[in-house]
């Protein structure tokens, strides 16, 4: 019941937020136009929708099977993450360098905890869902295609990393210095986060990479939605900080998450005009083969 209730509330709040944003940012004109030309627009993105569905199914399988495989073949890197995190603030504190997460939490207040908890759950979902609505409402299909490819790339690369690396977040290791604030203060969210992800899926931070992706995509559509650029930027930065503030991710996860977000957008732009296909992939592979000089007799 707790689980259904929490999920219901997230869905409701995000639906309201997306509706409000759609009316104010996208505007009634675009929405009406989208409704009218829905079929054509849908046709323009069909191959991409299929691709995203494949990725999401693969991801679901990987998240169920992944942790088990990961337990057997994955490299345990928690110790390394802790070590690297402990050095990142060296320029600020050369003598007694604190852990990034502990440093952030040293500034914690109940208000900040509430803000970051809300952003981590609601803000994040909104940040990902709204672009889909906003970009479907644009007459040119590239932004929505780019978005779907970029989201898919995030998931795919993220899941591969989760299988390859086994890592636990700060809340599971440096418990004296960092608290799993979201889960001790707003425990009910843990039923949801636990259902969508495994606690060893920490490196890299998908929250970060997806948020960064959404913000970078906002920049690519700044002509159409200028107001979405600052909103998404503030939300993305808040999500990124929240992952560390709440003790869920190491700063190193976040750095790699930012890189992944950037790479994903690059991949999205690369394939926004032609969807990646199996034959296309084969062609490129053949091209690669031909590029390597092979001595023939």
């Amino acid at each position: 019941m707790t689980f259904a209730f929490v999920v219901g509330r997230v869905v409701f709040v995000v639906a309201v937020a997306v509706t409000v944003a759609a009316v104010t940012i996208v505007g009634p004109g675009r929405l009406v136009e989208t409704r009218r030309t829905f079929r054509e627009r849908f046709d323009a993105i069909v191959p991409y929708v299929g691709l995203l569905a494949v990725v999401l199914v693969a991801n679901k399988v990987a998240r169920d099977v992944g942790p088990e495989v990961s337990e057997l073949v994955g490299i345990r890197i928690t110790g390394w993450l802790r070590r690297v995190d402990g050095r990142l603030l060296w320029p600020l504190y050369p003598n007694d360098t604190p852990q990034v997460v502990a440093w952030l939490q040293s500034m914690a207040t109940p208000e900040l905890t509430a803000y970051f908890s809300l952003v981590y759950v609601y803000g994040y979902v909104f940040l990902l869902v709204f672009p889909l609505v906003a970009y479907v409402s644009l007459p040119r299909p590239e932004p929505i295609r780019r978005t779907m490819i970029a989201y898919g790339a995030n998931y795919l690369i993220g899941v591969l990393c989760y299988v390859a690396f086994v890592a636990y977040g700060p809340r599971n290791l440096i418990v004296e210095q960092a608290e799993g604030l979201l889960y001790t203060q707003y425990t009910h969210y843990q039923f949801v986060t636990n259902a969508v992800n495994d606690e060893t899926n920490v490196f890299p931070s998908l929250h970060t990479s997806m948020a960064v992706t959404a913000a970078l995509l906002a920049w690519t559509t700044r002509e159409e939605y200028p107001i979405w650029v600052p909103i998404s930027a503030v939300l993305a930065v808040s999500v990124v900080v929240s992952t560390m503030y709440l003790g869920i991710h190491w700063a190193t996860d976040v750095l790699f998450g930012i890189a992944l977000g950037w790479v994903s957008v690059a991949i999205g732009r690369r394939f926004e005009t032609t969807p990646p296909t199996v034959s296309g992939f084969k062609d490129r592979l053949d091209g690669l083969k031909n590029a390597i000089p092979v001595r023939r007799r």
């Binding site: 019941m1 889960y183 425990t187 843990q190």
Partner: peptide
């Protein structure tokens, strides 16, 4: 349950 905190949460909610 995912944590001891979550266990107490379910207890308090009579689940």
């Amino acid at each position: 349950v995912p944590s001891h905190d979550a266990a107490v949460e379910l207890l308090a909610a009579d689940e």
